[in-house]
Amino acid sequence: MIDEVGELLREAAARTVLPWFNQLSAEHIVEKAPGDLVTIADQQAEEFVAAGLRRLLPGSVVVGEEAVSVDDHLLRRLRDGGRVWLVDPIDGTANFAAGRRPFVMMVALLDAGVPVASWILDPIVGSLAVAERGAGCVVDGVRLADGVSGESPPLGKLRGALALRYLPDELRARVLAGVDGLGVVLPGQHCAGREHWDIATGEQDFALFWRTLPWDHVPGTLLVREAGGVARRLDGSPYDYTDDRPGLLVARSEAAWQELREALLPAD
């Protein structure tokens, strides 16, 4: 089924996402909430992927970002004991709507509430990252070495992204007070799935998020963990998608996570 889901995402990209890229008009874009966009491509892709996943795994439940935006009671299904698919048809919708990269398509499979597999597709280049719980992860068929980070670079050489937009003012001030000790602070890609991907492959060392919606982070945090990385809440507790609290710090290694927390989130 691992390969079948990947092929489903590729087909969905070819049929429902790429034809709309740089072809959207104003009537094809809706603001669900201030700054939170959905396009006709998001809607068509989610419908296509959801139907395909149900065929692949009869009796399974699909929880998609756009379906939840219409009926948030669907989120309760993530706590079901059976097999549940979590779908983000286009992660990075604002980028997609503006005709720029990155944006990705993401799926995760939950079994009895535990993420057991995830898929992230970059539709533009056709690159696919896949993670299986306890079995590692591959990118375009090439297995990532467990613990890609090796020895973590010192704090002054770490590079990563800080998503500051939604941080409360007091927390933002604390985080910004600690950035001088970091190597490179990136502006963020406005695409959580891509941030996780780049951490898993060693392209960057960390990312800090405030919003922790499950479709944004379940697929990518599984990828990071299977590559030897760490994804935890700001208080140090493991990331749990059923926990509605905001705040998530992801790093390529345990040592990097501890260094970053001490620098960016010093104890009061």
Rank of each mutant, 00 (worst) to 15 (best):
P34H: 11
V61T: 15
L164F: 03
A256L: 06
D88K: 15
L186S: 02
P153Y: 08
R211F: 03
E66A: 07
D268A: 10
T16P: 02
G82I: 13
A26H: 15
R55L: 15
R143D: 00
L182I: 09
G113E: 11
G35I: 05
R54A: 15
G59N: 04
D3A: 14
L75M: 15
V130K: 02
S118R: 13
E4C: 11
V63K: 08
S127G: 06
N22C: 14
R225H: 05
D88C: 09
L164G: 00
S152A: 15
E31R: 10
W215C: 03
G141D: 07
V63A: 02
V17L: 09
L264F: 04
E31I: 13
W119P: 01
V61H: 12
G99L: 05
G59R: 05
E259S: 14
A131I: 07
N95R: 14
E11W: 05
K157G: 08
G52I: 15
S152E: 03
I199K: 06
D180P: 00
E195D: 07
G247L: 06
L37H: 08
A251T: 05
D235Y: 00
R101Y: 03
A33S: 12
G188I: 12
G150D: 03
D198C: 02
G183P: 12
G193Y: 06
A173L: 07
D205L: 04
D216K: 09
R54W: 09
A173W: 02
G6L: 10
E254P: 02
P168E: 01
G136D: 00
L162S: 01
W210F: 14
W257G: 00
S152C: 07
P168H: 06
G126Y: 07
V87T: 08
A112S: 12
G183I: 13
L75Q: 10
D268M: 03
A117K: 06
G220C: 04
D198Q: 10
Y241N: 02
A161S: 14
Q204S: 03
L121V: 13
P214H: 08
Q43L: 15
P266S: 04
E46K: 15
F103W: 13
P89S: 08
G99A: 04
L167G: 02
A267C: 01
W119G: 04
W20G: 08
P89F: 10
G247R: 09
V148I: 11
A117I: 12
L53D: 09
G156V: 04
V184N: 01
S149M: 06
R79E: 07
L182W: 08
L158E: 04
E4H: 15
V250H: 02
G141H: 10
C191T: 10
